[in-house]
Design a protein around this nucleic acid. Structure first.
Length: 271
DNA sequence: ACTGGCTCCTGAGGGC
DNA sequence: TGCCCTCAGGAGCCAG
């Protein structure tokens, strides 16, 4: 599933092909994404030139002259550049046709993704306005986690996955980062000390950077054909490993459910 | 202000 | 070319 590293990898892969390109046509084959794709989109987008390809959280932002196209991949979405002659498959819901003949094609079997056109400052859009800092930016610190978590009783894992606290930490990486930091996922957020939040912020950065390094591999697979699941799988320490041995202490990895999400941890290494 | 629960959707996987 | 059930997951949204 597209986590932040994969969205960033997608951005890096697409940017060189999209920058400076004029959009000649847009075809929406299925409007039923998470939010209905605006009917007027092809009209406003045709003739626009892509000036920048940015990312905010897990949203891709294609900045054009008259506005910004905002794409979310949901959990099963992917974007590929394909040949104009390639027939769209079953779950390939929209195309953006470029002046050079290339086609930016969106595939999303579960349709949890979205497509918005934003006129004006994209950062002011309701979906972006309340977002916390990027995890790989200097604004993301243990001090911030500590300050925001005082008197919060939510499990620290749920807290870490709150996009107002920090963006881009999905279910897999939340479990992995907490394991690396030695913090139990079910510990109340307000009962984690500053020094341990420093460790956690470091762990989040480390996990995301490691995954980003693997993301390059994912993009190749994903551009070449089907995205293979579990590109980061071999590096996972706890996620999906309930009942197996902790790689550090040998005790059994446990699973619990927090905020309707499966959470994995070692009861010995994490406190 | 917080917190927990629900929701969208389809494919995968397990039981039979 | 088996059918049916359950579940996973990003994240917005809402009720209490």
């Amino acid at each position: 599933m597209p986590e932040l590293p994969e969205v960033e990898t997608t951005r890096r892969g697409l940017a060189p092909h999209l920058l400076g390109q004029r959009i000649t046509a847009v075809e929406i084959r299925d409007h039923r994404l998470r939010w209905p794709v605006p009917l007027g989109l092809p009209g406003v987008l045709a003739g626009q030139t892509v000036r920048a390809v940015d990312r905010r959280a897990k949203y891709l932002l294609l900045r054009c002259d008259a506005g910004t196209l905002m794409v979310h991949l949901g959990m099963s979405g992917s974007l590929r550049l394909v040949n104009a002659a390639a027939r769209p498959g079953k779950h390939e819901h929209w195309d953006i046709v470029l002046a050079d003949g290339g086609v930016l094609r969106y595939r999303d079997p579960r349709r949890f993704g979205s497509l918005h056109w934003i006129v004006g400052e994209a950062a002011d859009h309701p979906l972006l306005r309340e977002l916390g800092p990027e995890p790989l930016s200097s604004d993301f610190t243990g001090e911030r986690l500590y300050a925001l978590s005082r008197r919060r009783r939510v499990p620290v894992k749920v807290f870490l996955m709150d996009s107002r606290v920090v963006v881009g930490v999905g279910n897999i990486y939340a479990s992995e980062a907490l394991y690396r930091a030695g913090i139990r996922p079910d510990r109340p957020a307000g009962r984690v000390a500053l020094r341990r939040y420093d460790r956690l912020a470091d762990a989040v950065r480390a996990v995301l950077q490691d995954a980003l390094a693997c993301g390059g591999t994912t993009l190749r697979d994903f551009v070449g054909g089907e995205g293979r699941p579990g590109y980061f799988k071999q590096d996972l320490q706890v996620y999906g490993r309930a009942g197996q041995q902790c790689r550090n202490c040998g005790n059994i990895v446990l699973m619990c459910r927090l905020g309707q999400r499966a959470s994995y941890f070692c009861g010995t290494c994490q406190r």
